[in-house]
Amino acid sequence: MKYAKVSFEDVTVGDELPPLHKGPIEQIQLTRYAGASGDFNPIHQDDAFARAAGMGGVFAHGMLSMGFVAQALTDWAGVGTVRKLGVRFAALVRLRDVVTCRGRVLAKSSKDDVHTVELEVWAENQRGEKVVSGRATLALAARA
């Protein structure tokens, strides 16, 4: 179910997030993300600039892919649950790529009524290559 909220008790180590498919990435989305984020680096907008920089053409903001990963987490666990999200940008996302965000529960713990879940998270392109990899910590509510 979209915009669900999982309870701490319903999460088991090894559980996988429902995959979130984003894209295909279009130039207009990169322009829109530039405007919304304030990151106007021409390397994401201007193909000639990106080629001259040796990047072989325009590529997506890493932060856009990180936004996708955050969405995969909040679609599953609910908004306001993310306590920590850290990622490495492992490969470039190009125009027309489809990005699939995934995650897996690594650990659960409870301390002082705070129930946290640790996940590994990643995003891959349509060839299955990792473009983002990282870790997330979510705080989940327990069932009353």
């Binding site: 932060m63 999200l85 850290g86 990622v87």
Partner: peptide, 12 residues
Amino acid sequence: IARVLHGEQEFE
């Protein structure tokens, strides 16, 4: 700026 890539990012 043409030499720059985003390597990692973390939010707490």
